[in-house]
Write a protein that binds this DNA or RNA. Structure first.
Lengths: 131, 131
DNA sequence: ATAATCCTTAAAGTTAAATCTAAATCTATC
DNA sequence: GATAGATTTAGATTTAACTTTAAGGATTAT
């Protein structure tokens, strides 16, 4: 009915160092300790880690994630703020995707150029051919 | 027939500091200097900056970009390597997009939850309703 | 009982990508 | 030709997110 930090490290791919670091930074306020002082992670804590992963991997800095967790700790009076933060973050992620798709066109063009260049052995010739 | 560093900074949105830093790191090897030692950026240099932007904004570290530029300097014998690098990078960008789309589902779920929670004023109630 | 895992604190080191500082020099305008 | 604003260099500093080190001890699993 709980996991030691090493097991959580394995499950998440994070190091035990990083997990303690996250806790120190206030990102894991709900992790309990047993009588001997060892951290016992619950399934709820793993869910938190999954949200942290989601936000971090989509570009939110740890400070922003901490803000969200602080709001969670404050309870229902911060529901609006949390909704707003997810809506803003969604927008941010959408913009990231659009940006990536935009640059993808340039990358595809470059691939075309270099495929042609490899074929004829000369970049300048390839550029003329494609233009 | 060329731009001073400040003009390039304005055009690109990069700072003059950053432009000099890029040059120092070997990312702008083609930029010339005038008789007094001031940098004069050509349109070709601006094109390079545009490629650098594309690669950087899609997650390539400056080191990787430098590698590409070094290959360019070596001429046609590295065409294969450059093609391969763009193909790999395309794959990387595709994976990024997929990752973002995957996490977007989680974000959308959270938005649903918090919208409902804001409506009824209680996160726990909202969670039960949605599940 | 002993090896593996965990604890704390505190500080130093790392990496990437800038960003800033200072003193000196160049360019453009009046 | 004076002067304000831009540019030069080398080197120091910053920020984020870890990662490592160390010391010294406690707990857990086999």
């Amino acid at each position: 009915m709980g996991y030691y930090i090493g097991q959580v490290a394995q499950k998440t791919g994070l190091s035990t160092h990083t997990l303690r670091y996250y806790e120190k930074e206030g990102l894991l306020p709900y992790v309990k300790k047993n009588g001997s002082g060892l951290r016992i992670f619950s399934d709820t804590d793993l869910n938190w880690l999954s949200i942290i992963e989601c936000l971090k991997e989509t570009g939110m800095p740890l400070k922003g994630i901490k803000q969200y967790i602080d709001w969670d700790k404050e309870g229902n009076k911060t529901l609006n703020k949390r909704l707003e933060m997810f809506e803003n973050h969604k927008k941010h992620v959408e913009e990231q995707i659009e940006k990536y798709q935009k640059y993808m066109q340039k990358i595809d063009y470059k691939i075309n150029v270099y495929r042609e260049a490899v074929k004829c052995g000369d970049l300048q010739k390839a550029l003329k051919k494609i233009k």
